[in-house]
Design a protein around this nucleic acid. Structure first.
Lengths: 329, 329
DNA sequence: GCGATACATGTTATCGATAACATAGCCGAA
DNA sequence: TTCGGCTATGTTATCGATAACATGTATCGC
């Protein structure tokens, strides 16, 4: 900046002002300085500005996986809305690993974000402590934690499975299986599995057709393999709920390979309202958790909190999910 | 940090050292200071450290879309390998918009990354200028630009289509169509379309069966719609190459809905080696551009460049793609 | 028992931008 | 003419950590 100032024959302060919109510099000087800066290849140093102003203008976000359309949608909607408030997103992903999430959170907090959004309500004790003491808004998403750290924008994963079991039972299906959610890594998958068991019991049905699919992220291939095991070991099953649409699609292809009719021989349901659920042949019944809505609500909450308007320290926004019945059930 | 120093009854310098691994502090003091810092909820301020050391320990990365398994794989492999060198990734996405990419690049450079990785070889003039003058390693990926800014890790999108056309022609198919790549937004899609036209001409075939699919990202749904138009307008078509596996799958489902046999009535090929290509029923013939390999090579290049070992200013690493023949052709 | 050496810790200056305050120059009203 | 007020610009101190240098103290060999 000093070089630019010398080249423009002004003080560094004037150069600094030329890069901001709200301060007073004559239009001519501002244009001249910007031109000189561009010619010199000068780019403002945000590191120094952040240190001085104690504002970084970014929000840290952790998601389990970058390659997941649901989380991608949430992050996309979140960053779009935050951009309206001049905030950028700093994204990091934990690989469904709580220990890695803890390290991530610490690294992110070192960069002094203005707020932090995390996925899920389960964290290591140290991660919880870091978040609670960060002195910035903390938002847990995609879940309704029993003991929230700060704010929450999510929904009950278990409740969605009650909705799905109701849907299947209404169709006269009672021998229902569940694929996935068997490992602890995917907290939300495990929640859905628990919700499934609870819903079955509420209907007086056996919830013993539980098929493991391994560690998250559960792929289409793992869904297909799990469906293979289900068909081999429990051929009387009438319907199966998969932990996600991807595994549901994999399960569907396995049926197609074996000549098992869907939904004739077995009904299939997924979760997530991924694009594939709406376009596969047949289309897949699924739950739409409205990932973009989670993002926009979280962004709005952050913008409100940072604007200084008085809000409670703990606020929970519950997102409405919907069941999308399709051809597989 | 001063508060921690006072609480521990040492100087701030000692606290600073307690958080670094390479400097000399007695083990007892280090443990004591870390404990006190944790209790106080103190987290190191990277902003100040970055300013002083002129090192930020992160690499900026821009991709067109966050919700794309190919780019996600590249970024995943890249960040994994960079982590070995203690580097983090700062990810931003341009939404397939060059003007937005320019703004992104400027914002990223303000945060003083140690290197920057961009997707593709097309940028606005100002973006090129910013990158060229950034004074850090610049790596363009997923492409082989005619006039690279710095380093390149990529492959020729056009060449992959030559390979695919060769494959189809070898099967005796000559009336071949191409879906997608019609807008300028998806540079690589347009390159593939051009490659398709060139390959057809090389075989002495007509390359006039070009179906538009709209602006990127091309979804499954758009692939299905485009296939509908193709079947309606050019029913004599024997094979179709889609700009990506997602659109290819959409096209496949449209055939299934219409009772058109694949590959009996029409063969379908995609691009990207997405999981769906390997699991759909039938499986889809595709090109594997090895996205993870792009990431690891880019990371290795960055680590080498930053280690100070002498390397040329411009280096191009060409990634080998492979054709994966499957059931749709 | 003494100086040399290693190790642990403290002091000072610095990174680059900007908030807060200071000042120069100009215009208009009394 | 003169003074108040406004705009455009300059000066100084500061954000928080750390490199470089300085200093104090235990340890070892002869």
């Amino acid at each position: 900046m000093k070089d630019v100032a010398i080249a423009a024959d002004v003080s560094v302060m004037t150069v600094s002002r030329a890069f901001k919109s709200d301060t007073s510099v004559s239009a001519a000087t501002r244009m001249r300085i910007r031109k000189i800066a561009d010619d010199l290849g000068y780019v403002l140093d945000a590191t120094a500005a952040n240190l001085r102003t104690q504002k970084t203008k970014f929000v840290a976000v952790t998601i389990p996986s970058i390659n997941n359309a649901n989380f991608a949608d949430t992050v996309d909607a979140l960053s779009e809305r935050l951009a309206d408030g001049g905030l950028q997103v700093l994204l990091a992903y934990s690989g469904y690993d709580l220990a890695r999430e803890e390290r991530l959170i610490e690294q992110l907090l070192r960069r002094r974000p203005e707020a932090i959004v995390v996925t899920g309500g389960r964290h290591t004790a140290r991660a919880r402590n870091l978040l609670a003491n960060a002195g910035i808004p903390v938002i847990e998403t995609w879940d309704l934690p029993a003991d929230p750290i700060g704010h929450v924008v999510g929904f009950s994963n278990a409740a969605t499975m009650h909705g799905m079991v109701d849907h299947l039972v209404a169709k006269g299906l009672t021998r229902i299986a569940f694929i996935g959610g068997d490992t602890d890594g995917d907290t939300r998958g495990a929640d859905r599995r628990r919700g499934f068991v609870g819903a079955m019991q509420r209907h007086g049905l056996h919830a013993d057709r539980l098929i493991g699919a391994g560690a998250p992220p559960i792929s289409m291939r793992e869904g297909a393999a799990a469906m293979g095991r289900l068909l081999d070991t429990l051929p009387s099953t009438q319907a199966v709920i998969c932990v996600s649409d991807l595994s549901a699609f994999g399960a569907l292809t396995e049926c197609q390979r074996r000549g098992v009719a869907v939904p004739g021989d077995i009904a299939i349901a997924g979760f997530g309202a991924y694009e594939i659920a709406g376009i596969s042949h047949p289309t897949i019944t699924t739950i739409d958790p409205q990932p973009r809505l989670i993002g926009t609500h979280a962004a709005d909450l952050i913008l409100t909190l940072l604007s200084g308007t008085n809000l409670p320290d703990h606020r929970t926004i519950v997102i409405d999910w919907t069941l999308r019945a399709a051809q597989t059930t």
